[in-house]
Amino acid sequence: MFNVSLENLVDIDLEQYSLQDYQGSTPRWCSGCGDNAILSAVQKLCRDEQLPPEKTVFVSGIGCSSRFPHYMKTYGFHGLHGRALPIAQGIKMHRPDLHVFVNMGDGDCCSIGTAHWIHALRYNMNMVAIMHDNGIYGLTKKQASPTSPKGLVSNTTPQGTYMEALNPAMVNLGVTNVSFFAQAVEWVPDMLNDIISQAYHHRGFAFVRVLQRCPHFTPTMFDPLLSNPNNILVLEHENGIKLSEAAGRIYKNHESHDPSDIQKAREYAGRHDIVPVGILYRNPEVPCYDEIRRPKRVFTPEMKEAVLNREFDKFSVDIDSSEG
């Protein structure tokens, strides 16, 4: 009748990646750890975008969050404490064809790796950086981190932390060449998936800060957000995330925010009364260092030889004539 056959509808030869194709070893995070939610969102993204595992690399530093590459069946690089971003930049510079993801914790990114973070924003290379922000050092068993809220009692701050927590949103939005900053909470999968997907599609350095529960050391840290969804301000926009109807019934506190407006984004970032969730800022026009530095033409072996010879000639000595 319509000449429809199964072959025409489904290309059975086409290989499709399933979630299992991205699942590495079994996560050894504590049960209830927010890292699990982030892992599941990222695996879903890989499946939805059909990212070839051999063309995808996850780079991490040191910390609970940095176990991430072990749990992905892609390429992975479990790097040094605080240095995940430079490692990822090295990879991206030479292999622009790879999908590069970076997983860092708050200690990793905001403490020992701060300098690299600032400059990664300025370089604006095509990659997705996810900061797992639980506001505590979990792997070394409960020491305060730069994003620990003021007054938090930990093993190195038995009297409570003395300083206001560092606000990663303000830092991101204050650095030259910032091109994408989003904030998410790991316990609302819809919004997390949406944000991570948009970060992946962004041209440039996409930084996502994910607020993440640590059930073992700071089980009550996010209670104000969990028990009262009105403390979360969802920023929606046709160019940002869209709140589903169901989620809208729970997260009643939402506003429309155009992610191209950096001044407004900074305003939201600086608010203390609520936690903004959504895409705060996006500008795909910012130049990317990896694109600027990509060779604009092909170099033949002859051209390469000529370059080397020209340089060596500057320093070569004619022994015969100097002796003569």
Binding site: G107, Y137, L139, K141, Q143, N155, T156, P158
Partner: peptide, 16 residues
């Protein structure tokens, strides 16, 4: 100091 296993307990005592 900076937290690093297996030395952090000494630092934690000092913090106290």
């Amino acid at each position: 100091g900076y937290p690093i296993t297996p030395s952090t307990e000494g630092a934690e005592l000092m913090a106290k």
